[in-house]
Amino acid sequence: MSAITRDEVAHLARLSRLALNEDELDQLAAQLDDIISAVAKVQEVAKGDIPPTSHALPLTNVYRTDESRPGLPPEQALAGAPSVEDQRFRVPRILGEEE
């Protein structure tokens, strides 16, 4: 049985706003299936008694002092923006594709 279905890949693509055609979906579904199946081998040794690892280092409570520092000047902050208006990032229309 495959670890990820073609429908699940299509769903993820939609959530990620990626336009994939039928051929790409077939190809990616197969590749992702290989990757997930390979990683899933870990499950065979890590049974229920080992919690999933979210952090590789045994650190907790790393905090910063609450002091503000200057960030980027706006010209620099906006330098990478494809479009700028009124010192703000200009983005394409948000609703419309689906609603």
């Binding site: 910063r64 609450d66 002091e67 520092r69 960030g71 000047p73 902050a77 906006l78 010192q87 703000r88």
Partner: peptide, 19 residues
């Protein structure tokens, strides 16, 4: 400062000056 960085949090600052 902000939750995960040291940017200031003043209300009403000019756009994109606390980033």
């Amino acid at each position: 400062s902000k939750m995960f960085c040291s940017c200031a949090t003043e209300f009403g600052a000019a756009p994109n000056t606390q980033v």
